Amino acid sequence: MDKKMDTWGTDETGSFYLPQKLEYGTYYLREVKAPEGYLLNTEDIQFKVIAERDWENPLVVACEDVPAMGKIHLKKTDKESEEALAGAVFNVIAAENITTPDGTLQAAKAEVVTTLTTGSDGTATSTALHFGKYKLVETKAPNGYVTSEKNWDVTLSYADQETEIVTKDVSVTNTPNEVKIKKVAADSQEALAGVEFQVWKKGTSAKDNLFDLYYADKPLFL
């Protein structure tokens, strides 16, 4: 029958020594609490004591932990209609030096760590990212929209030792391009009110007009 011997914790070197020598036999090491930022190793590690060892040359049993990670889930919509927008491109940029808890640098501040492009449903999800602070910068707006000058700050943080991926949702809107037409008299340059315009998309005909009639003193949203 298996018998629990005791519970020990690692020191700043990531190791610990058993306080007494073990008799010959087969043993198991089980992790019950992972370090901050890491996932719990749920596999029991088997080791065997088959030879005499001294304290200067102990039997070493290794246990590896995998860091938990995060993902950014982006949703892009029309600011007015809330319609999903495809084709928007964003850079995900490290807003600080991104390091794992052991101090390993994963991404330097200002480094572009990945790029997101929204699909037909207006969403995009990043690859797994190490925890830290990031910012989203739009580099290309969907056709017919204005590229935003705003940056979106995103912080990915550790949840617990069982949560493999922490997902952060970010909602972004785009404003349609606005075109304002001003109608003036050719001779006096005086503004003329009440003039009507018809607008249609290039490659189509006026009879297939996609837009309504607009007055010259009102902006056109294309």
Rank of each mutant, 00 (worst) to 15 (best):
E111M: 12
S205P: 11
V195G: 15
H130M: 07
I93G: 03
K207E: 11
N57A: 08
V137E: 04
G103R: 04
I98C: 07
G9F: 06
K33Q: 15
Q106G: 13
K48H: 09
T115I: 11
Y27V: 03
S81K: 10
N143S: 13
Y134T: 00
A191K: 15
E96F: 03
P176K: 03
K48N: 12
G9C: 07
L22G: 06
K183H: 07
D65I: 08
T127Q: 08
S126P: 01
D54C: 10
F131R: 03
L220K: 09
V113P: 03
D121G: 01
A34V: 06
E82Q: 14
S205H: 13
L29E: 03
Q198Y: 10
T167L: 09
Y24W: 13
N174S: 06
E164H: 05
T123A: 01
T118A: 04
V154R: 02
L220R: 08
W152C: 05
D2F: 11
K75T: 06
T7Q: 03
F90Y: 04
A141E: 00
A51W: 11
V146S: 14
D121K: 04
V170Q: 01
Y24I: 11
L85N: 04
A141R: 03
E23V: 10
D217S: 11
D54L: 10
P58A: 05
A216W: 06
A191Q: 15
H73M: 10
S120M: 15
P35N: 08
T7L: 05
G122F: 02
N97Q: 05
E36W: 11
K135H: 08
L39V: 02
A107N: 07
K202E: 13
R30D: 10
A68C: 12
F47S: 08
K79R: 07
V49W: 05
K202L: 09
V170T: 05
